[in-house]
């Protein structure tokens, strides 16, 4: 018996060693695959940056350089010297920041209602808020443009902000709802017992505990609003009111910038920068925000 056991044990040990060696070899294989894929996925971004810092004569060359040969900021200064770009940058900042603040404020109230109360018509409220995602934006553009014009908000930044708030609402409300639902109800009840009013429990108990959720949701809202193109393209026609996204696309189309790929890539980099910075700062929070919204429910 014991002989058999020790024999099988000694047979098992090398197998275990072999399998751990195999696993290590596998990990090396997976690591190589992971690195190759990282390089492939990152390549377009690398090319964006490379093109933007190369002098034009290298950009327009039959055999492109894969490593920077010379460094020049002329593409960036070209974009920055354009007063239209600077104006559009300011417009984008105003529209995006207002959208985020407004949608967090409005969305927090709705999220409270959905996370903390049972009431008649709750299912209907969820269907309406989340159903917004179902409506193809393009379908609504023509009547929306007309409705805003009738309300005196045609071709105004306020009109665009209100439209953006509506279209960021499903995400904002649902994510905040999840964060609020994760705050134990007992805390509200304890606060109520201690004599807080309902509104005091909202801003003294729930608000501070959902602060990470507000930041994550706000960052996402910022990205959605900053990156938006389709609505801005229709709602903002006046040159002085447009956003950087519109600037970028019209730069890409203008005959004067025909093959000015360096300038286009510099403008692209500048347009992406505010979002990239936010992503890198809030990466950890964003991941937790997403998981909260998508996985835990």
């Amino acid at each position: 018996m014991s002989a058999v056991a020790s024999a099988s044990a000694s047979a098992a040990r090398p197998r275990a060693r072999r399998s751990s060696a195999k696993r290590r070899r596998n990990t090396i294989g997976w690591n190589i695959l992971g690195l190759v894929l990282s390089v492939l996925i990152a390549f377009p971004v690398y090319w964006l940056l490379l093109t933007s810092i190369e002098p034009t004569r290298y950009v327009q060359s039959a055999s492109p350089n894969f490593l920077p040969k010379a460094f020049s900021l002329s593409s960036y200064t070209e974009v920055f010297d354009d007063p239209v770009f600077r104006q559009d940058l300011v417009n984008s900042l105003i529209i995006t920041a207002s959208t985020v603040l407004f949608s967090l404020l409005v969305g927090f109230f709705a999220a409270l209602a959905l996370a903390r109360f049972r009431f008649r018509g709750k299912s209907l409220a969820i269907i309406i808020v989340m159903g917004v995602q179902m409506v193809p934006l393009i379908a609504l553009l023509f009547p929306l443009n007309d409705v805003l014009a009738k309300a005196g908000l045609g071709d105004t930044q306020l009109g665009a902000i209100i439209a953006y708030v509506a279209f960021t609402a499903p995400f904002t409300v649902w994510t905040l709802r999840t964060f609020i639902a994760n705050v134990p109800r007992e805390l509200d009840e304890a606060a109520l017992v201690d004599g807080c009013t309902r509104f005091q429990t909202f801003y003294k108990v729930i608000l501070p505990l959902t602060l990470p959720g507000l930041v994550a949701t706000g960052v996402f809202g910022w990205i959605q609003a900053w990156n938006e193109f389709l609505m801005a393209n229709i709602l903002l026609t006046d040159n002085s009111k447009q956003t950087v996204q519109l600037y970028l696309v019209s730069f890409g189309n203008s005959p004067t910038h025909g093959a000015d790929w360096g300038g286009l890539m510099a403008a692209s980099t500048l347009v992406s920068l505010p979002v990239i910075i936010l992503f890198l700062i809030f990466q950890r929070w964003m991941a937790s925000g997403l998981t909260a919204g998508a996985v835990k429910g």
């Binding site: 996925i41 377009p44 990239i276």
Partner: peptide
């Protein structure tokens, strides 16, 4: 991989489209 994905994620569609056109 995560850092690469975060960079790609943050690129607006306007930018990614102009970039691929290039």
């Amino acid at each position: 991989l995560t850092v690469v994905l975060m960079f790609v994620w943050s690129v607006p569609t306007t930018v990614s489209t102009e970039l691929f056109r290039w």
